[in-house]
């Protein structure tokens, strides 16, 4: 029962962003449908064909590469899960930490409420992304619903993993560093990806490079559609592990964990 009060409080914190989420999801659906139709019958189809000629790849591969744009559109609603960090910032601004620990709630309930907010918000984002996927796949046969849902679940899992690690670090280091904590994992991934790809490409000859570019899309698409289950499982495991770690941190740091 006490957790419900904290969930209500988090809902009030996120109420404004929920309205933005709704507006953005409607916009995303419209853009996605327009893009999908354009890829099939309109200007985007012509651009894809020209690109195929210029890049020296077959038309099907060129079309596939442009589909990524629809994938990027469809995952936008899922990115809203990241707004849960706003609850931490709102608590800090209100100096809610002292009030919170004077309430009849323990560390487990405090952390569980925040994780539940994260899960609820993820589900809401998931519903938004699913509706977007339904609309796009209904508008164009080129985008099967199963493919779009794989992308949604994959990206949602990545967001959950990211958010769980961020929340745990916020409890540990403090809310005032939340912006740095949010940026750090993205920065690290970018640096690793750039360094890895440069190292790999430096050791390739021209033929290997051409083959990589030609097959890249197939590799990426295959990876994403075949490993969705693994990412989801990893997300669940990370969620559970970070929950217990966060409870220990909050138990130790008490009011400082919310500041």
């Amino acid at each position: 029962m006490t957790m419900k009060g904290l969930l209500i409080k988090d809902y009030y914190c996120l109420k404004k962003s929920l309205k933005s989420f709704l507006a953005l999801t409607i916009g995303v659906i419209l853009i996605g449908i327009m893009f999908a139709i354009s890829m099939e019958h309109g200007n985007m189809a012509m651009v894809a064909a020209e690109t195929a000629v210029q890049a020296g790849v077959d038309e099907a591969t060129a079309f596939d590469m442009f589909r990524v744009a629809v994938w990027l559109v469809i995952i936008i609603p899922m990115a809203f899960v990241g707004n849960v960090v706003d609850c931490f910032k709102a608590d800090m601004r209100a100096e809610f930490g002292k009030q919170l620990f004077s309430l009849p709630v323990d560390s487990k309930q405090i952390v569980a409420a925040r994780y539940l907010t994260c899960i609820i918000y993820a589900l809401v984002s998931f519903v938004g992304a699913t509706i977007t996927a339904i609309c796009i796949s209904s508008a164009s046969e080129q985008y099967p619903f199963s493919e779009l849902m794989s992308v949604v679940v994959l990206f949602g899992s990545v967001m959950i993993i990211y958010l769980c690690i961020v929340m745990c670090l916020i409890y540990l280091i403090g809310v005032k560093y939340a912006d740095y904590i949010q940026a750090a994992p993205l920065l690290i991934i970018m640096i690793v990806a750039v360094v890895f790809s440069n190292v790999k490409m430096m050791n390739m000859n021209e033929a290997e490079m051409d083959s990589l570019m030609a097959n890249m899309w197939g590799t990426v698409k295959g990876f994403m559609t075949q490993n969705v289950g693994i990412f989801l499982l990893v997300a669940v495991v990370i969620l559970v592990i970070t929950y217990f770690v966060s409870v220990q941190i909050v138990e130790k740091r008490r009011g400082k964990a919310i500041c």
Partner: peptide, 26 residues
């Protein structure tokens, strides 16, 4: 408990605080 600073979120109304507290205190 009463602290020297309010500790409730600025955007909350008294009614919303009541709803929150009703689901915290038995």
């Amino acid at each position: 408990v009463v602290f020297d600073e309010m500790g409730f979120h600025d955007f909350m109304t008294a009614t919303q605080i009541s709803k929150m507290m009703a689901n915290i205190y038995k």
